[in-house]
């Protein structure tokens, strides 16, 4: 009675299949080139002109990394906006979800491809590291942790952006909302904002709220990693943002795919 049996690839292979298509997809559109050029240009500009890497006596990469949150603020949404919005607009989501993939395979494969792409952009800045090493004797361990922090931050923004992209068919809306949310996630750790909170709510309640807010801020954890040591709490923070968002992403895709 049973019909022809069809083999189903393993979960890893299914995710890899999505990853491969997506990652290659970045290079078939002008997006990849534009993104890489803008990212490299701006990191160099901020590091050497605004951050004054040469003028400082210390040879380290802090001026380089300290601008990454603000670059990611508008560069990451440019990558994440199309992840699901495009798929829904063109109807290819119907194809993907009727192939033997689980929604989790699709969400994870797409996210990893986007993350690999922003990480590639980040790795293309290694010449900056080489320059600093040539000029002085930097703390290489701290630089490695800096790269890790930067990649984790980009991954968190991408995961947030991926959820927002699944909520709308309009890429512009996905871009703007992702930039705003990422801004809020950074902003809630800003000393100025925390002072305002303490002003609104004087006393210990205000203090507790400020502490809670700053511990939810990506900026707090990013700055903490910038000190050059891996604090497990920071890694757990970024890890839970990414995993939490991807989990929500699966629910949103299933909920919204047919709209």
């Amino acid at each position: 009675m049973s019909a022809i049996e069809h083999a189903i690839p393993s979960g890893f292979r299914r995710t890899l299949c999505i990853f491969g298509r997506e990652f290659r997809g970045y290079f078939t559109t002008p997006l990849a080139g534009v993104f890489l050029v803008i990212f490299l240009f701006l990191t160099a500009f901020f590091t050497f002109n605004v951050g004054g890497l040469y003028e400082r006596d210390q040879a380290d990469l802090r001026p380089f990394f300290q601008f990454h949150p603000w670059l990611y603020l508008f560069l990451v949404p440019a990558v994440s906006m199309r992840l699901w919005a495009e798929e829904r607009r063109t109807g290819t989501i119907e194809l993907l979800t009727t192939l033997p993939f689980t929604t989790a395979n699709l969400v994870v494969g797409k996210f990893l491809a986007a993350w690999a792409f922003t990480t590639l952009a980040l790795l293309l800045t290694v010449p900056t590291w080489v320059t600093v090493s040539w000029l002085g004797d930097p703390d290489h361990g701290a630089i490695v942790v800096g790269y890790l922090a930067s990649a984790l931050l980009a991954g968190s923004f991408l995961a947030i952006g991926s959820v927002l992209s699944a909520l709308t068919k309009n890429q512009v809306i996905a871009f703007v909302i992702c930039a705003v949310v990422a801004f809020l996630v950074l902003l809630c750790g800003f000393p100025a904002v925390l002072d305002i909170v303490r002003g609104w709510m004087p006393g210990s309640a205000g203090d507790r709220l400020a502490v809670a807010l700053s511990s939810m801020s990506a900026l707090t954890h990013f700055d903490s990693l910038m000190r050059g040591v891996i604090d497990l709490r920071d890694v757990i923070y970024f890890g839970s943002v990414i995993i939490g968002c991807l989990y929500i992403n699966v629910l949103v895709v299933d909920w919204k795919k047919a709209d």
Partner: peptide
Amino acid sequence: KACIGYLPEGAPAYP
């Protein structure tokens, strides 16, 4: 799904 071949309305594909 592994047993099905499906042509959705409008034949969506990656342009």
